[in-house]
């Protein structure tokens, strides 16, 4: 896969389809791949990386990149393509300046998950069929890939690239029984006190680094309300117990019905706060109350929060049905 993607990147550059390529390159560590722009064969050969750690969703970078001269090629995994299409729908990306190469994906891995399995000091990872071969300071180890997946990939909702100019690998299908709402349901089943304790424990770790916001493809405002003095809620850091609550509720609300559930917020959180659960709660409520809706799956439907029917349920449904809306 890695070689095919690199070859495609070089091909698109050299045949003049595009003048730059958006892909991944190694960050500080080999498992921390970051987005990178490549403009030459040499650059691609030397620094372009694609591995089980190419989790970063590249779609958001196209807001700025598609406004620059010339065309850019981008590699989109299935979940990234939903974000891409949602941004297209919101007129944020100039489609004609982007060449989309869809790539089939069967899940991305996380070094955190590997470490949680008690394997430390990993210096290299190689895919070997269903397994990952790990080179560690303490000798070689093998782990099933399925055991090293990111949470979002364990509960993958779709393996279908929804927008592409060409595909590498075979395009997949949506996965209806992804069980992605299991944790949301588990929380709903708790008492309010338990839920409060859970979220207090999670959210109080927030250091307001804004990584979740900065990586989120739906959080693509020119200027975030939290950075805008005029909004009256601009805060640089968590000043109180509630501050981060406020930030995360508002953030989740702002992306509600636009969030494609790409899971980047939780992946990048340095404090490992399961932020995606807030988004999934909104998605689950929307699905149950207003009909199934997957943001980014098409170009035409109105997002449920910008829509209504005259016989929508009343807000009191929240009391009537308890935690489980």
């Amino acid at each position: 896969m890695r070689e095919m993607i690199k070859a495609k990147a070089i091909e698109l550059l050299e045949n003049g389809t595009v003048n730059r390529v958006l892909g991944w390159k190694a960050g500080e560590f080999f498992y921390d791949l970051t987005p990178g722009i490549f403009t030459s064969r040499e650059e691609i050969e030397e620094t372009f990386e694609y591995s089980v750690f190419s989790a970063a969703n590249l779609s958001k970078y196209l807001i700025a990149e598609s406004r620059k001269e010339g065309k850019i090629a981008v590699f989109l995994k299935p979940c990234d393509s939903y974000s891409f299409q949602q941004l297209l729908k919101e007129h944020r990306i100039w489609r004609d300046r982007v060449y989309v190469v869809g790539i089939a994906c069967d899940g991305m891995c996380s070094m955190d998950v590997i470490r949680d399995k008690g394997i430390t000091g990993v210096t290299a990872v190689e895919e070997d069929g269903e397994n990952l071969k790990l080179t560690t300071l303490y000798g070689d180890k093998t782990i099933a890939k399925a055991d090293a997946l990111l949470e979002r990939c364990v509960h993958c909702k779709s393996r279908k690239v929804v927008v592409f100019d060409e595909m590498i690998g075979e395009n997949g299908e949506e996965i209806p029984d992804s069980h992605r709402f299991d944790m949301v349901e588990k929380l709903e089943a708790m008492t309010p006190e338990e839920r409060f304790a859970f979220w207090r424990g999670e959210l109080s770790r927030c250091i307001r680094c804004n990584a979740c916001r900065n990586v989120c493809p739906a959080c693509s405002c020119e200027k975030c309300v939290f950075d805008n003095d005029k909004s009256g809620i601009a805060q640089k850091a968590a000043a109180s117990d509630f501050e981060e609550n406020n930030f995360h509720i508002i953030r989740a609300f702002h992306v509600a019905s636009r969030c494609t559930d790409c899971g980047e917020c939780s992946r990048v959180c340095p404090q490992n706060i399961p932020l995606h659960l807030l988004n999934r709660k909104f998605i689950r409520d929307i699905n149950e109350l207003y009909g199934e809706y997957q943001a980014g799956s098409d170009m035409d439907t109105k997002p449920p929060l910008m829509n209504f029917t005259t016989d929508d349920c009343e807000p009191s449904v929240v009391y009537e049905r308890g935690g489980k809306v």
């Binding site: 919101e90 007129h91 944020r92 693509s220 405002c221 020119e222 200027k223 805008n228 109105k302 997002p303 910008m306 829509n307």
Partner: peptide, 21 residues
Amino acid sequence: EMMCNGCSACEKVCPYGAITY
């Protein structure tokens, strides 16, 4: 204008068609 994303969210909820881009 300095802060507008051009995302059309406002246009979708406007009952009067008062918003253009």
